[in-house]
């Protein structure tokens, strides 16, 4: 086992993963990779997503993860089980109310000219809930995964408290003020 953990920010799409990446970056955590998905109206500061992450499900070429040790990388929760067992991971798992997640995803789809009908939403809500339940169970069984659950609403409402929790979890000194400022800005934008 290689000892320096990879910091993985995870969760469903639109559960606050990009905000968490911004917080970590502001706090002084190195971010893995430069070519992030371009910013748009849904994520004005960019998505922190790497094309390589999308390929996790299709390829066995995981060697790039070696360079991500000690850095933060965003990997959505449906891809977590594709991560190789050769590395250690500190997973920050974002939780957000599923109604808010779906609403935000639907807005994003609408901007892309796609519509989600109510029936699909109801089925997806159940599927996402099941997925989250299963992934949490799975994570709990992995010796090389250390996990902290972070609630989106709590980050927005009390960012300093959550920043401190993250510092303790990651066991590194972070700039807590700058981290909190990221979430404060988010709150301001959503008013």
């Amino acid at each position: 086992m290689i000892s320096t953990p990879i910091i993985v920010v995870s969760g469903l799409p639109r559960s606050g993963t990009s905000m968490m990446m911004q917080m970590l970056e502001a706090g002084g955590v190195p971010i893995y990779g430069e070519a992030r998905r371009q910013a748009d109206a849904d994520n004005p500061r960019g998505y922190y997503e790497l094309a390589r992450v999308k390929e996790l499900v299709k390829t066995q070429h995981h060697t790039w993860l070696g360079a991500a040790q000690g850095k933060a990388v965003k990997i959505i929760s449906p891809l977590l089980q594709e991560l190789p067992g050769a590395y250690a991971y500190q997973v920050i798992l974002m939780n957000r109310d599923l109604s808010e997640v779906l609403l935000s995803q639907n807005k994003m789809l609408a901007r892309r000219g796609q519509q989600a009908d109510k029936d699909a939403n109801d089925k997806l809500r159940a599927s996402f809930a099941k997925h989250l339940h299963e992934i949490k169970n799975w994570l709990g069984q992995q010796a090389n995964f250390k996990v902290i659950a972070v609630d989106y609403r709590q980050v927005v409402n009390a960012p300093a408290v959550q920043a401190k929790r993250l510092q303790e979890f990651l066991e590194i000194n972070l700039n807590l003020e700058k981290m909190a400022a990221v979430a404060d800005e988010k709150l301001y934008r959503n008013r």
Binding site: P13, R37, E49, K54, I76, P78, Q105, M108, L109, R112, Q114, A120, K123, L124, S127, F128, H131
Partner: peptide, 11 residues
């Protein structure tokens, strides 16, 4: 369903 949604969202 999850896979389709992730693809549609670009993830």
């Amino acid at each position: 369903l999850i896979k389709e949604r992730l693809k549609n969202l670009g993830y």
